[in-house]
Design a protein around this nucleic acid. Structure first.
Lengths: 118, 118
DNA sequence: TCTTATATATAATAAAGTTATATATAGGAG
DNA sequence: CTCCTATATATAACTTTATTATATATAAGA
């Protein structure tokens, strides 16, 4: 019960964690990659991304460090943590459960339809 | 673009419309049937259902009428309209698109990973 | 120099879900 | 007859998340 209300809202943290899985990345890079991965379906905006990243960091699911490569402006790189990987797997599974239940509920009629009670 | 932000939130109107598809039903009955159909996964509450029903009515997707069967207290029956059926189909399809994109984005890495640009 | 892409961030607003509360009736237990 | 529970509809207050708008700053190219 506790989780299903939460996962109805917010696929954003899930998407962010998934792109951080292979290697550390910075915010702008995450935005671009999410757009590319979804062929433009998910338009991740800065106002959605950065607060989400800060919250993920507060929860200990990602860690950040500033890096200043010469010739580039400073970038804040985010690394997924061990608990971040666990949270990603869990959230992914919860989404699958939610979706399965949604479509089951939408498509399946009642097993034994009862007439309207008096 | 216009729709995908809307469908992230709110599977509630979709679920309501789907249970109204076979025949007219009243609010409390809709709540119970949604719980039964989903084997208790979706706990539709009154505070979620009734405002949603009123909004669906305002949008012309359902119509309501009070009925007072003897021996029962008055019930407000909701009937799905023609545009309600169309909206249900459309919303269902949008959810499928959303879910397909979500899992594709989560599971598929980039087709041609580009190194970090300088 | 001006514009665009890059890069991070916050504020204000709107939409939806959750919790709590209000009102009222029918039926059963005691 | 009274109390409690299930039925039945509804609103208010609060929280969370997405959207829109804005702010700041740097690198690259016209």
């Amino acid at each position: 019960m506790s989780q299903i209300h939460q996962l109805r809202k917010g696929s954003t943290p899930l998407l962010i964690l998934s792109v951080l899985l292979p290697e550390k990345k910075y915010g702008y890079q995450i935005m671009r990659e999410l757009e590319q991965r979804s062929d433009g379906y998910f338009t991740m905006t800065a106002a959605l991304l950065y607060p989400a990243l800060h919250e993920l960091e507060q929860e200990g699911l990602v860690e950040s460090e500033w890096e200043s490569d010469p010739g580039c402006r400073k970038r804040k790189y985010y690394t997924i943590t061990t608990s971040g990987r666990a949270a990603l797997q869990e959230s992914h599974a919860e989404w699958q459960t939610f979706v399965a239940n949604l479509f089951k509920t939408l498509e399946n009629p009642l097993p034994h339809p009862k007439e309207t009670p008096k």
